[in-house]
Computed example of a mutant assay.
Amino acid sequence: MEKAKFNDQTTVSTVNSNQKFPITDPSGNITLVSLDVLKKAIADGLNLQAIEDGIFIMYHRTSDGYPLMVKPYKWPSIEASGEVADGVVVFEGGRHIVVAPTEATALPWSSAAVQGDNINYGNDDNFATEVTGNNRLAAMLDFNGRQHTDAAIKASSSAHVTNTASYAPGYCRAYSRANSKGKGLTAGYWWLPSVGESLMMYANALKINYALSLIKGATQLDLGTWYWTSTEGSSQYAWGLYFSDGHLSLWLDKVQDKGHVRPVSAFLR
Score class of each variant (00 low, 15 high):
128 A>G: 12
193 P>L: 07
138 A>L: 00
130 E>C: 14
141 L>A: 14
132 T>A: 15
220 Q>A: 13
180 S>V: 10
220 Q>V: 15
180 S>T: 11
216 K>Q: 15
182 G>W: 00
162 T>N: 07
198 S>F: 06
168 A>V: 07
190 W>D: 00
139 A>N: 03
216 K>H: 12
184 G>A: 05
205 A>W: 10
144 N>Y: 08
229 T>L: 07
151 A>V: 08
156 S>N: 04
192 L>Q: 02
157 S>Y: 10
218 A>L: 01
218 A>I: 01
190 W>E: 00
173 R>N: 10
224 G>D: 14
173 R>Y: 09
196 G>C: 07
218 A>F: 00
160 H>V: 15
143 F>K: 04
155 A>D: 06
220 Q>H: 11
129 T>C: 09
227 Y>P: 02
157 S>C: 12
140 M>A: 10
178 A>Q: 05
194 S>K: 03
118 N>H: 13
219 T>Y: 01
195 V>N: 06
150 D>H: 10
218 A>P: 00
151 A>W: 08
158 S>E: 12
120 N>R: 15
174 A>Y: 06
225 T>D: 09
156 S>K: 02
182 G>S: 01
142 D>S: 05
190 W>Y: 00
223 L>F: 08
146 R>A: 11
115 Q>V: 09
204 N>I: 06
142 D>Q: 04
220 Q>P: 11
160 H>P: 11
165 A>F: 06
162 T>P: 04
188 G>T: 06
126 N>L: 11
151 A>G: 08
124 D>K: 12
215 I>Y: 01
158 S>W: 09
185 L>D: 01
197 E>V: 02
180 S>D: 07
217 G>A: 03
166 S>Q: 13
133 G>K: 06
220 Q>E: 12
226 W>T: 05
175 Y>G: 01
185 L>H: 00
168 A>Y: 05
121 Y>G: 09
147 Q>V: 13
219 T>V: 07
221 L>W: 01
151 A>M: 10
159 A>D: 11
202 Y>S: 01
137 L>G: 07
130 E>P: 10
150 D>W: 08
213 S>C: 02
185 L>A: 01
205 A>M: 15
146 R>G: 08
125 D>A: 14
174 A>S: 13
186 T>M: 01
157 S>L: 10
199 L>F: 09
205 A>S: 13
217 G>L: 00
201 M>I: 10
139 A>E: 03
206 L>G: 13
170 G>N: 04
135 N>K: 08
135 N>V: 07
137 L>A: 13
129 T>R: 11
144 N>F: 07
142 D>H: 02
119 I>M: 15
139 A>R: 01
177 R>C: 03
192 L>F: 05
209 N>G: 05
183 K>E: 08
195 V>K: 04
156 S>W: 01
124 D>R: 12
168 A>Q: 05
169 P>T: 06
151 A>H: 12
145 G>V: 04
186 T>G: 01
132 T>S: 14
175 Y>V: 02
153 I>A: 05
155 A>S: 11
144 N>A: 15
216 K>I: 08
131 V>H: 12
161 V>H: 05
212 L>H: 00
174 A>Q: 12
158 S>L: 15
